[in-house]
Design a protein around this nucleic acid. Structure first.
Lengths: 157, 157
DNA sequence: AGTATTTCTTGATGTACATCAATGCATAGG
DNA sequence: CCTATGCATTGATGTACATCAAGAAATACT
């Protein structure tokens, strides 16, 4: 585990990389995302304090995700091999599975408005820290659609 | 790890259950799914031979998934606590993370046709074993939409 | 501070998919 | 064997979102 500082905008991993490291965020904010075949970004995950950010590709296969820093960030870096030797943090792994399961369920069963409401409840601090278009990207909608949803929700009250 | 036989149609877990067991499929086919607030089913995962089927909810929280058998199935059952003691199968865990990451990426970045094509490539045997409406449910579309996609694809050739 | 760039919003239009309804087929159970 | 139930398909219509375009507002850059 090596501690490093990265500046906002720094790229930690590119699609196709084989290295496949694991980043434990101490402070700041990372994101992982993909770029689809139309060149559109889709945010896979935000990584604020205490989150673990990594591509879950199997060892020695090319990564599918970009990872970069949305803020100046302090991270602890390790290779997957190192982590496996040390005996990985099972609690963290289970939490991660839970998070991903929730994300899948959300994507499958809720419309954009509900996904947004769920997001604001689950990650109340993140929404203050990133542009709305990134929230839209995480939710799987366009910035325009998110703008309209927020508009509608604010009128209701 | 206790080995049990279940008949097609048997329900192994219900939403809200706290027990939260892990099922390792030896032969047959399980599925896990949710029911949304409109009463609609969404298949979360199919569990054929050698798959691990479980709700990834954190220990001692209520499950979000139903789990039942789509065929007569032989499974090994364990509680999460047991598995954690034994030292879990890390390779299986990593594979599971990879699967879920792929599922999320699919749901976010591909249209129904691409998701279907990806599914048929990735799980060629499952499509023969379940009704198409379940494939549709897994893909996040209606049976009607799937029917039209298949129609279109078969004409192309 | 002033300019450039990104971000957000609003409107008009388009489209992928859902919903609803009807029909033909297969399958299962008495 | 006959009937009931579930499954797949097709057509008509509806809708949630995307796309495109333009302008306003915020942010970053020199």
């Amino acid at each position: 585990m090596k501690k490093i500082n990265v500046k906002k905008g720094a790229v930690l991993q590119r699609i196709g990389d084989i290295s496949s490291k694991v980043f434990l965020v101490e402070s700041g904010l990372l994101r992982s995302y993909i770029i689809d075949d139309k060149g559109k970004e889709h945010i896979y995950m935000f990584g604020p304090e205490n989150w673990l950010v990594a591509d879950s590709c199997e060892p020695n296969t090319p990564c599918q995700l970009f990872i970069d820093a949305l803020e100046d960030t302090i991270i602890n870096v390790a290779t997957k091999e190192e982590l496996l030797k040390e005996g990985p943090d099972l609690t963290a792994l289970l939490k991660r599975l839970d998070t991903m399961q929730n994300r899948i369920i959300m994507l499958m069963s809720s419309n954009a408005k509900k996904r947004y409401e769920h997001f604001t409840k689950t990650y109340p601090n993140i929404i203050q820290r990133v542009p709305l278009k990134m929230v839209a990207s995480y939710l799987g909608i366009t910035p325009e659609a998110l703008s309209r949803i927020r508009n509608e929700l604010s009128k209701k009250k």
